[in-house]
Design a protein around this nucleic acid. Structure first.
Length: 174
DNA sequence: CCCTGATTCGC
DNA sequence: GCGAATCAGG
């Protein structure tokens, strides 16, 4: 495939639009990203305005994870959104040992069956359950202490050290 | 490893 | 001029 005027024009447009060389190559077809970059340089438009899209995020491979609730709403450093939890089991530094037993109360039954987002309160476990894309989605809603987002059971999962969370995946890869 | 653009150099 | 191979960086 050769660099016809049309293709060069398209290249110029896409490049100035901030598309990556590989994206442009895919758009044009018949050329590699190397060819695109080479052409860009020969055309002398190597420097370009800031890309609107910092980086094209390639579609994530649907990683096969442990089937049970891969939702892990708590960050590895023990944060949820902007909230930093004041739990000793979620220190700022990554815990090297298993978390100490949590003192949260734990009731067997949810305070609210199939609690939706409008029904959760300071005292209900906010661990998400079910498929978020369906009406099956709800929250655990067992009792949790004020200021603690989860019941004892889910807090234990949420604060599980990253090293333990990843062990399975790592082993599987080897 | 995945990606990015930059550079080189044989064609 | 072209672009694969390679490089350095994220």
């Amino acid at each position: 495939m050769s660099w016809t005027d049309d293709r060069v024009e398209l290249l110029k447009k896409l490049w100035s639009d901030g598309l990556s060389a590989s994206q442009i190559a895919g758009e044009l077809g018949g050329v590699t990203r190397n060819a695109v970059i080479g052409k860009v340089h020969r055309l002398g438009l190597s420097g370009r305005a800031k890309a609107p899209q910092p980086q094209a995020q390639r579609p994530k491979k649907p990683t096969t994870r442990p089937a049970t609730s891969s939702v892990r709403p708590v960050g590895a450093n023990g944060t949820i959104g902007n909230l930093a939890l004041k739990s000793e089991t979620a220190p700022a530094t990554r815990p090297q040992t298993a978390p100490q037993p949590l003192v949260y109360s734990l009731s067997e039954e949810p305070l609210i069956a199939n609690a939706n987002v409008l029904q959760i309160t300071e005292q209900t476990c906010k661990w998400p359950l079910g498929d978020p894309s369906t009406e099956d989605f709800h929250f655990c809603a067992r009792r949790s202490d004020v200021g603690i987002p989860y019941c004892g059971y889910h807090a234990r999962i949420a604060y599980q050290p990253v090293s333990e969370r990843r062990r399975d995946r790592r082993v599987a890869r080897m």
